[in-house]
Design a protein around this nucleic acid. Structure first.
Lengths: 343, 343
DNA sequence: ATATTTTACGCAATCGATTGCAATTTTCAT
DNA sequence: ATGAAAATTGCAATCGATTGCGTAAAATAT
């Protein structure tokens, strides 16, 4: 691109025969500049199509008015909703978002975080990748005096600001609901247990069974059935058991639940009468399958808003050291056709 | 957050009794530094947990290694995919993405663009909002010497880099396919005609009718049936016509097509035998409805990659003025159950 | 050993905006 | 009209990294 010399406050100052100081003050609504000269300055700034150089301004001011966001995948429904929510609340306060995706890879996540530190972002918002094993890089963020807000998938041992869903309770309610609807052998498709969210969902499942005095059967708990394909595989395995389950809680995702449904259909097993299904996330498609799929809504956009607000709240009293705080959002069980054993 | 004095190249220089110049050069792999001192510098930089201040660096260098992206909604499938695609290809070259959403509002779009200009981004990637009526703000981007890449929804009159889908051809193929499958009265749900993409889709529809010698019937063309609800409304109206259509091409989106399907089901009209349906975008849910919905895949992630590559290609020969260039990606018709009138 | 290149490093200006302090001008009270 | 207070504006340093130019030191040639 051809190089264009952009107009600076010096250009404006020169044209008016004053100093850059005044121009800067005028443009920043400082009270120590005469109203007439301010108007003049603003007018010429406009004429010259002046645009403030945020880089220079931020360098001088020592912050960037920028928030870095690191998620496994931008184009995953939950995350894109959270990001949209963050953008909503931060944009109106003049903050910008720099987005990176870790692709679920630990090393890339570290790279992303370092890039953001270099960029002097004021805050890093992160949901850790599935294969993250240590959190040195997050500690490093804190050491650089940068706000750190973890959400959804969090490193629990790290004392930071966190915005999470109450996965345990949501799972409890989902499983309790299935039991109350008459299902007796409920299988669990679980996700990678190094992620807190999947541990919590499993705990909710176990607690519901215990609470309703339903025995825990190990062979009904399938590890790592994360995607639609893995969910389908797990389902085939489960339904071919001597004593197959009469319900499956796909705690990993709705995609997994969809895999379950498709296998059930293929095997000609009636849903919900012979097999109950519950997913997780309230993806758009869950309400248009037949039967529609019971699932759990995470209020993802709202979660994003919450993250944004939390940031501003903490920035406000920024002189004191931030004390770790956890905001837990209660997800909602959406009961639909797939778990309606008894009407 | 407590203020942390971050280590600078001066700190490193001071500790080693040399100048910042050498530190800078060492850290930038300049050949004019002794190999031993370079190692020493890198070692101490590491010890002091030094992170380059990108703001300062960029200010000096006159660019930001940052690309701004403006889309109507981040959490809309198509856009989040494109963004993911852009991130994929730009991240590995050390570029960061600043994301803004216009929310389909012209004024917000202008604000976003201005913010990005202030940020000194090296490029702005944009898909204009539905209610954009003039493009002064985009011209302004060019005037500031910033690369501008429009994608999908573009202002045609502006001569910039563009990455688009061949909507006309895709629509042509979709409608031709329906005609060839035996549908005779094909309705069109069209989107806001100020957006090029919807104009093109309409043109494809018209061309297919002409090509197959099917008469154009005005009352079968419904304006602004963009969402699921609007699609449903339009469908009710269409199906209550004295001579109702036997197929509906929801050129606006798959959501609209879903609205069509639901109304048809509610009115007990058989799809595809009594009514054919075709959507647009290949949303995930289209393959799990019953019947599954014929639609058009836009290769959105690939589109993002293309945008990224285009940027680098143009940055490479950056001294010459960029000449406008249009890259057109051919979408693919995905034929499914909803248009299978004749087997 | 001396002259000539190379190599390595320092000096100081620069990118553009901000801001504490000083200097000047204006305003106002007496 | 005069001194003091208040309002404006200017000066110059600063944020942290980069880089052209100059010089000292080391390497090589004669």
């Amino acid at each position: 691109m051809k190089k264009v010399k952009r107009t600076t406050i010096y250009d404006i100052a020169a044209k008016l025969g004053i100093t850059a100081s005044s121009v800067s003050r005028a443009l920043n609504n400082s009270s120590q500049v005469n109203e007439k000269t301010r108007e003049l300055i603003i007018k010429t700034a406009d004429e010259l199509n002046y645009k403030r150089n945020t880089l220079a301004s931020n360098l001088r001011k020592g912050h960037s008015k920028t928030i870095g966001v690191v998620v496994p995948r931008i184009n995953q429904n939950f995350f894109s909703n959270v990001i949209a929510g963050i953008e909503e609340t931060t944009y109106q306060k003049g903050y910008n978002l720099i987005i990176c995706q870790s692709g679920e890879v630990h090393d890339k996540e570290i790279q992303c975080v370092n890039t953001l530190i270099n960029q002097h972002v004021d805050c890093i918002v992160i949901s850790v990748s599935a294969d993250s094993y240590d959190y040195q890089h997050l500690q490093n963020v804190l050491d650089h005096g940068i706000q750190l807000i973890q959400f959804d998938r969090v490193a629990e041992e790290l004392e930071t600001l966190k915005v999470i869903n109450d996965n345990e309770q949501a799972s409890f309610e989902a499983v309790a609901h299935m039991i109350d609807n008459g299902y007796k052998r409920i299988a669990l498709l679980e996700g990678p247990q190094n992620l807190n969210i999947f541990r919590q969902r499993k705990n909710g499942y176990l607690r519901a069974l215990a609470d309703r005095k339903v025995p825990i059967i190990d062979e009904l708990i399938i590890e790592n059935a994360w995607t639609k394909e893995l969910g389908a595989n797990a389902t085939r395995k489960l339904l071919n058991l001597p004593e197959p389950p009469d319900a499956i809680f796909a705690s990993t995702s709705d995609f997994s639940a969809l895999g379950v449904l498709e296998v059930a259909n293929a095997m000609n097993i009636k849903v919900p009468s012979e097999l109950g299904i519950c997913g997780y996330s309230n993806e758009a498609f869950t309400q248009i399958t037949s039967p529609s799929i019971t699932t759990i809504d995470q209020f993802s956009v709202y979660m994003g808003n919450t993250i944004g607000n939390l940031f501003f709240q903490e920035v406000a009293n920024s002189d004191v050291a931030v004390k770790p705080k956890i905001i837990s959002i209660k997800p909602e069980l959406i009961t639909r056709g797939s778990t309606a054993k008894k009407s």
